[in-house]
Computed example of a mutant assay.
Amino acid sequence: MVASTCAARGVVYWLGSQLYVQLTNRARGLSLVASRGPAFQMPASSGFAPLEAEPTVDAVVAAVLDAYANDERKKALGQDVGRTRRADGGATDPGVAFAGLGDPLLRWPDVAEITRRVREHHEVPISLYTNGLLPPDAPSAAEVASTLHEAGVTAATIALNAADPDSYARRMLSPPPYTPAYHEDGPSAIGDVSGASFGGACEFISALSEAGVETTVTAVATADTASVRDLGTALGAVAFKERTFLE
């Protein structure tokens, strides 16, 4: 397999033919990795690693375009890689996802800019994995969601993990009682949560749905997953996914 050599350590990683992009190690609310439990590890084959430094927009765009040009995990999809839909409507290419150890929403303007530039070359699905907690200096949830959708973000997955404010504060805004993989300690796994709230996460889910972004809500199995699923549906999410928790 010919692998991309353009990106610095941690900027891109893979799960199958899905290319993931990391923009930051900084968390805002319990990171997706940390939420999966103390024993959770990314597959060694993914090439996942914490970032050594936050990449520039130019570096990320170059890494994605290099993957499409040189990595067999994208090239093997066929010469018609730009055709993103099969006859049954499914995606030929799962595209590019913003995810990782930190929360890409902390760099949401860069998510939008990278998406615009990548889609100038490859009209593939672009997805976002986040807690939905905007940084303190961000504009309204509606403005951010509209900007992402207009740039070409097609789907978002929001880790909600609770269906009420108290549970959310305990699960998502408090350090976990263990040191998760890839994090220095429990506090680093939640990052700066000043101003973050259950209501803010719910507002962002609704804003994404209203903007036209296909939105999925997730919860780890230790949560009240039925209630989270019902809440996500009420907020406009089109799907729900339960994630395993590894002790």
Rank of each mutant, 00 (worst) to 15 (best):
N131M: 07
Y129F: 14
G47T: 03
A59Y: 06
R171C: 13
L23F: 15
F240D: 00
S188W: 07
V81T: 11
T157I: 12
N131K: 00
V64E: 01
A87V: 14
V124C: 11
C202S: 08
E123F: 12
P135G: 10
A201G: 06
G152I: 02
T5F: 04
V228E: 00
A76E: 14
M1H: 12
A196P: 09
W14A: 05
A138R: 03
V217L: 01
F198T: 02
G195D: 05
V238I: 15
T56V: 12
I158F: 00
L173K: 08
D166H: 12
T216S: 07
A196V: 04
T218G: 00
A99R: 06
F198R: 04
W14E: 04
L208H: 01
P50Q: 14
A142E: 13
D80Q: 14
F48W: 09
P55W: 08
T115I: 08
R9I: 08
K75C: 13
A223V: 09
L23Q: 11
A138I: 09
S4R: 07
A234L: 11
S227D: 10
H122R: 15
N131R: 07
L160E: 02
G212M: 05
D192A: 02
F198P: 01
A181P: 13
N70K: 13
E52V: 12
A91L: 14
F40W: 14
L77W: 05
N161S: 08
L51F: 05
F98W: 02
A211R: 03
G191D: 08
V21S: 05
S140Q: 07
R26S: 13
F240W: 02
A27D: 15
L15G: 08
L106E: 04
D58A: 12
A237Q: 00
D88F: 10
L208Q: 01
C202L: 08
P165S: 06
P180C: 08
P125H: 12
T216P: 09
M1S: 15
A63K: 03
D192F: 03
D164M: 04
R28I: 14
A189H: 01
A76W: 09
A219F: 00
V144H: 06
T130H: 00
I114S: 03
D88T: 06
M42G: 03
V11Y: 04
D224F: 00
H149D: 04
E123Y: 10
L160I: 02
R73L: 08
A156R: 03
E247N: 15
T222W: 05
Y168P: 10
A99K: 10
G236H: 00
E150V: 11
V21R: 10
G37H: 01
